[in-house]
């Protein structure tokens, strides 16, 4: 989070100020990249670049606080994920979600473990085994840190449905975690 200085950063970013874009990028890129990897994006770094490019193209029309901005950023990231899902589907390369894990980016740099004996990649693989709707909700909730109302806007689902998906997704994840690999 950038915090109280966010409005100034946003204002400067709209005019193309170098420092402001560095601040936005440093604040958000790690989470967006984590989000893209959790969805098994094939070229997560490239997709991250796409997200920021689109942000830059449309930032002049954005108006709102930092919470709304983060929500917008992850909406763009979510759309990139959906684009990729559709593209793969059209090419019949990976017709179901469940096959995505076989092409999941190995992401060797993400070995930083937060005390768990599972690697981030292994957790991402578990996420691939959830339904895409559950995965959407859990990643937006946990990685992006968005609220249920924000997610319901991005996913175009009712808040009640988002909460149900969240519960089922977490339950499924817990079950998978309790089974040794």
């Amino acid at each position: 989070m950038i915090g109280p200085g966010f409005n100034s950063v946003l204002d400067a970013a709209k005019t193309g100020a170098d420092w402001a874009w560095s601040a936005l990028y440093n604040d958000l890129s790690g989470q967006v990249l984590g989000y893209l990897r959790a969805h098994g994006a094939r070229e997560p770094e490239d997709r991250l670049g796409d997200v920021f490019l689109q942000l830059a193209r449309n930032i002049s029309s954005f108006d709102g606080d930092e919470g709304a901005f983060r929500s917008w950023v992850f909406m763009i990231a979510h759309h990139r994920v959906i684009d990729e899902r559709r593209r793969l589907f059209r090419r019949h390369e990976h017709p179901t979600d469940d096959n995505l894990d076989s092409v999941a980016e190995p992401a060797p740099s993400a070995e930083d473990e937060a005390g768990s004996n599972l690697s981030t990649d292994e957790i991402h693989e578990m996420l691939q085994e959830l339904s895409s709707a559950q995965r959407d909700v859990l990643t937006l909730r946990i990685i992006a840190g968005l609220t249920v109302p924000e997610i319901s806007v991005i996913l175009r689902k009712r808040p009640g449905a988002v909460k149900a998906l969240q519960r089922r997704g977490l339950d499924a994840l817990r079950r998978k975690l309790s089974v040794p690999l």
């Binding site: 890129s29 740099s109 993400a110 946990i142 990685i143």
Partner: peptide
């Protein structure tokens, strides 16, 4: 797992 997912990736 949740804590680990929350750790931002490094670019």
């Amino acid at each position: 797992a949740v804590a680990q997912l929350r750790t931002p990736a490094t670019v």
